[in-house]
Design a protein around this nucleic acid. Structure first.
Length: 279
DNA sequence: TAAGGCCTGCTC
DNA sequence: GAGCAGGCCTTA
């Protein structure tokens, strides 16, 4: 599922391809993928608006327009594929399978939004003030772009009672971490996912920050993690799944101590860890 | 803090 | 054929 590295890979691929282009009339195959405003209003307002810049905050894509802002979120199974003018769409499955929205450009070419599970969607805002009306609560600081070590450690100190894994997954605390990269970061830091933040030493908090950065950097360098559905904007798979140490490896030997990896449920999420190496 | 809801396809 | 997978919102 797309987490920060996957969304960042897509952003980097798409930016040079679509910046400067203007949207034409969208084609909605699944209207509920348009979260705000109403689908008809969305289709009326979007055409003619030009993409100035493609940004990212947490797992949201920010299409900054000459007027307003288009937000996109892929949730679990969303894919955003770019098709150049006159080229065949390089969809690994059938062209129509799971296609929810087509966003054509006036200059030719189009973005295709696929989403098997229909969780992802788009919000068209005139400005950031409109978020509340759109039912959006914007994420906290991006953990890759907007937080340095001392800030992150101080933020942790402000949440002493929280358990570390649910806190890392809280997008309002810090944006970008999902289940896979959180489990990997905690294993590589030797920290048990259920630890209360107040039991972490300052050294452990700092190590966790640096480990998170290393893991996210590796994920980005690998083009993301494809456990099942994820594809980048060209339809290609990532390769970080080949370097996972705990996620999806229940029962397999720990890469460090060879004892079996365990899977428990923490705050409703499947959580993979090594009980021997993570304290 | 925890749960339910949104979804579909795969696993048991 | 039920239950699980999970990001993020809402509700309790």
């Amino acid at each position: 599922m797309p987490e920060l590295p996957e969304v960042e890979v897509i952003r980097r691929e798409l930016a040079p391809l679509i910046c400067g282009k203007s949207f034409a009339e969208p084609v909605l195959f699944y209207e509920r993928a348009i979260r705000y405003p109403r689908p008809k209003e969305f289709s009326r307002r979007l055409p003619g608006r030009c993409i100035v810049e493609l940004g990212r905050k947490g797992k949201y894509l920010f299409f900054e327009l000459d007027r307003g802002l288009l937000l996109g979120h892929l949730r679990m199974t969303g894919k955003l594929l770019y098709c150049a003018p006159g080229a065949a769409l390089d969809n690994p499955t059938a062209p129509e399978k799971d296609l929810r929205v087509k966003l054509p450009f006036a200059e030719g070419g189009a973005l295709y939004f696929y989403d098997m599970r229909k969780f992802g969607g788009f919000w068209l805002l005139e400005d950031l003030e409109e978020c509340r009306a759109a039912g959006l609560s914007l994420p906290g600081p991006d953990i890759w772009e907007e937080l340095d070590e001392s800030t992150f450690v101080a933020m942790l100190q402000g949440r002493p009672r929280a358990r570390i894994k649910p806190l890392l997954l809280d997008q309002h605390f810090a944006a970008g971490m999902g289940n896979i990269y959180t489990d990997e970061s905690l294993f590589r830091s030797g920290i048990h996912p259920c630890r209360r933040v107040q039991t972490l030493t300052e050294e452990e908090s700092a190590l966790l920050y640096r480990t998170i950065r290393d893991v996210l950097a590796a994920g980005i360098a690998c083009g993301g993690t494809t456990t099942r559905d994820y594809r980048d904007a060209r339809g290609a798979e990532g390769s970080f799944q080949n370097f996972l140490t705990v996620y999806g490896r229940k029962g397999e030997p720990c890469t460090h101590c060879s004892r079996p990896i365990e899977r428990i449920v923490v705050a409703g999420r499947g959580t993979h860890f090594c009980p021997h190496c993570q304290k």
